[in-house]
Design a protein around this nucleic acid. Sequence first.
DNA 1: ATGTGGAAAGTTTTT
DNA 2: CTTTCCACAT
Length: 678
Amino acid sequence: MNKSKELLEELNPEQISAVTHYKGPMLVLSGAGSGKTRVITHRAAYLVDHYGVEPSNILGLTFTNKAADEMNERLENLLPRQLDGRSPWLGTFHALGAQLLRDLVEELGRGYDRYFTIYDQSDQKKAVKETMVDLDISTEEFQPGMIASLINEAKNDLIGPDEFRSEKAGELDDYTLRMVSRVYNTYQEKLEDWNGLDFGDLIRLPTVLLEKDLESVRRWRERFKFLLVDEYQDTNHAQYVMASQLAAPENNICVVGDDDQAIFSWRGADVSNLLEFEEDYPDARVVHLSRNYRSKKPILRAANAIIENNKLRKQKEMEPERGEGKSITIYNATDEEDEADFLVRQINKLRENGAELGEIAVLYRVNPLSRGVEKKLVKRNIPYEIVRGTRFYERKEVKDVLAYLRVICNPHDDLHLLRIINTPRRGIGSRTEEAIRRSARRRGASVWDVLTGEEEPSELSSRQISRLKAFEEMIEDMRERRGERDLVDYVKGMISEIGYFSFLEKEYDPESAEDRRNNVRELIGQIKETDDETPDLEEFLENVALESDVDSYEDQRNKVSLLTLHSAKGLEFGYVFMVAMEDGLLPHKRSLEEGGMEEERRLCYVGLTRAKNRVILSYTDSRFLYGQRFSHLPSRFLEEIPEEEKIYLEGKPGTLSSEGDGSRVSSGSGGNWKDFVE
DNA sequence: ATGTGGAAAGTTTTT
DNA sequence: CTTTCCACAT
């Protein structure tokens, strides 16, 4: 109780009211740059320090692990002494679901055990495809990815395989409905046989469990007395239910969000969770945080003007607390090469004027757009970091090693077992594989059950059988030796036992083999890093499965950041470039077709409001993308920026144009190149 | 059982 | 342009 006063210093009245609120539901509508993270962390600290809440009774749910880590760090700074060791549970919904299930899955009585494997979306797609092949459903007629996303959608809405047909009756035509329902059912059976869970299950199954009246379940329900949910506008229905279940009956739930920053509806996020919070909890306190401490005025005025065009939103406007600044600069490039040149010139100017590279971000709508920029940055020796689409864990060699580890944890995981059964080659080919797979299917069991079972699939030769036996014994052996040594040594031992490095050498040319070896070493390095905190294989694999792109991203003082608009949410930069401001890309063509215009506008809004000092936008007359040349019109959002907040540039440096309706006149003057850079 | 090449398809955002 | 898939030869 000694820091409470200090915790409230430098907070505005609205922030104080959110921080000091004690029991009962609260909705914090926090606009971009309004000090949201600060409010959440201070609130957690205040609960502990002022109200004497036990830290472990606090649950903080975030959207990414990075956000959770950041919260944790800030909290430790706020309360260095009080916490020591006893900290709140901070993490993502999925991490919470996974942890709860490690404890409780067995209560479901469906054959899962605590060593379950988490399937990411590419694993899931593979499993769906395999299911379709088993069921003889054409993967031409129905794309596996499309079916997978229908299944995900259902899971996000807490619709299980049995309810699918009746629940979705209106939405899909009869035939599609029947097919998808069959796939969903069989897919789910497979997951059970394999002791595997997909992302949707990590939320859906906990909600099923939390309904149960069991001592073990009650412990979880009663564990968290105070909930803090960040980015509430991006929760889906299942997450909403899970949060409500954990908050009941006292409902000390504080949700923080901004409907203008809802950009994940394609993943099942449902803004109505935020918009209807007051109906769910009629006694909720509502706090508006509308003072923006991040962006200079022109940026905020532009962002406000754009977002105002959305119909489906709570009426509000962000109040600028920072001073005047430079106008938004808009550059019309001829093509992506010209655009990248422009970018480099601008970055160099910013640098000359004292900006650090780490304060600069380049944002774009789709990952492939990073290429053109990247190429130029390499050429001009400007350090950069791409917050990635192709992730480290997606590399083949990393996946191979991880597959071994997953199988060691959970040998019923067919998907990964079949990945490694003949990698490195051990003479088990597609025919053998088919035979054991069929046999497993027939028995409704996993391939591992077949391998360890008494009866051998009859159609196999004795040579095949002995090879399978050898594989089985090897895995068995590894499973037994687990825990004997520390994890890093164990994994190293495993890699040499299976001869993975020599396999790489045989398989690839020398330099590529070397690259791949390094990636495996890097993976071992990562185990080492987490080893200190978590010496536990399951936990390591879980972290790998639930890691997001932004998680591994650290603010680098001396590198330009390249990232998608989606990944940029929650971050801030001194200087923000948004490239490819073109109709078809932002707003994206596919969203336009699907009526997602307002979400595209929010995406644009999120991008602009990342910037503290300056925003520089660019578009091209034509660009090369996906192996084709596209001519796009300038983004319609550019027109929504008020004339007085923007300067148009065109073509070569120094030309100030008043294209279009002729009324566009700059507030910066003279068209002098130097003028529009700080 | 494995290796090769060439055709074909798919590219919004991701826990 | 990339990645994935498939048919055919070894």
